[in-house]
Design a protein around this nucleic acid. Structure first.
Length: 201
DNA sequence: CTCACGATTAGA
DNA sequence: CTAATCGTGAGA
């Protein structure tokens, strides 16, 4: 089997979010519902390292019905709704009871583009289908019911690809976490340099 | 029960 | 720049 066809195993996700986030760049995120197959190259991620990070939903070990999935071992999806109209999708990172996550902010659409356009008809062009956290979830049909779904299963999985070289990975501050005090300045956002499918600078 | 607000986006 | 729009969590 070609290594480029290899699904990342659960073990891949059982690592700290700040390591997993850059390692996910360039990998292929896939959704296979049986009816449709959608895929995209991960272009931009952020890490939410958990209990010590004011920007994380699990800051100070906050544990509620919504974020319960974060307390399970890595490799599961954590999808939550925001502003009443959008969905944000994370992959749980780290071990059990270490509530970390990697937020997927942008993808480069690869396969199933017709379906994506159907899911998100307002997108102005190809790159607008997936260049933002709540845009790509819309194109891919990801919603809250995907919470708890395995990211190494048959419906959702991530295909391995050669690691992106360090010099092609850009680090930056996370977006939309201005409420997080000094943690807002931590460079926990990662994206592929010169990639035009990332969300706004 | 009430109420304030968000890991965003589209549109003026 | 602001409105949209409701799940969520905190507090009474």
């Amino acid at each position: 089997m070609n290594s480029n066809r290899r699904k990342l195993p659960r073990k891949f996700f059982i690592r700290p979010a700040k390591i997993l986030a850059p390692d996910l760049l360039g990998k292929i995120f896939c959704v296979n519902t049986g009816k449709v197959f959608l895929s995209g190259r991960i272009a931009e991620t952020e890490s939410y390292p958990g209990i010590k990070d004011p920007a994380s939903h699990s800051y100070k070990n906050k544990h509620t019905a919504r974020n319960d999935i974060l307390y399970r071992p890595g490799g599961l999806l954590y999808v939550y709704s925001i502003y009443g109209i959008y969905f944000c999708c994370n992959i749980v990172a780290g071990k059990k009871n270490d509530p970390q996550a990697v937020f997927i902010r942008a993808l480069e659409p690869l396969e199933g583009i017709d379906t994506m356009k159907k899911n998100y008809p307002a997108a102005k062009s190809l790159k607008h289908l997936a260049n933002g956290p709540c845009k790509w979830t819309k194109s891919f049909g990801i919603n809250k019911s995907f919470t708890g779904e395995k990211a190494y299963g048959s419906k959702i999985y991530v295909l391995d690809k050669a690691a992106i070289k360090r010099k092609y990975i850009k680090r930056a501050k996370r977006i939309g976490v201005d409420y997080a005090g000094s943690a807002k300045n931590r460079k926990l956002r990662f994206y592929i340099k010169n990639n035009c499918f990332i969300s706004k600078a």
